[in-house]
């Protein structure tokens, strides 16, 4: 488990994220939601840790499947954000 001191250390960034998202300009909010959808693939890092540590065929297969699904969501999510913000040369701005 995480020590209470670590929990105290992670609280400020979480509060800052809440305040930053609240301060977003209305015209950028939908794009920010798209980015947040891509960023919400963060449990993928957890899947990497689990796949690295876990033993047994069943749990290993489950964690590898989680990596597959998380990677699809991560790359497709950030790719869609890039296109929505006009960053891809293939799309009209």
């Amino acid at each position: 488990m995480i020590a209470p001191l670590s929990l105290l250390l992670i609280a400020p960034p979480i509060i800052a994220a809440f305040l930053l998202a609240r301060a977003a300009m209305p015209r950028w909010r939908p794009a920010m939601v798209m980015l947040l959808c891509a960023m919400s693939a963060v449990p993928l890092a957890g899947a990497w840790i689990v796949a690295a540590e876990v033993g047994g065929a069943g749990p290993k297969l489950l964690s590898l499947s989680a990596i597959l699904l998380g990677s699809i969501a991560l790359v497709a999510g950030f790719g869609l954000v890039e296109r929505a913000l006009g960053g891809s040369k293939d799309d009209p701005a």
Binding site: I14, I15, A17, F18, L19, L20, A21, R22, A24, R29, M32, V33, L36, M39, S40, V42
Partner: peptide
Amino acid sequence: VGAAGLAL
């Protein structure tokens, strides 16, 4: 991610 999603 949780906090920003909740705020938005």
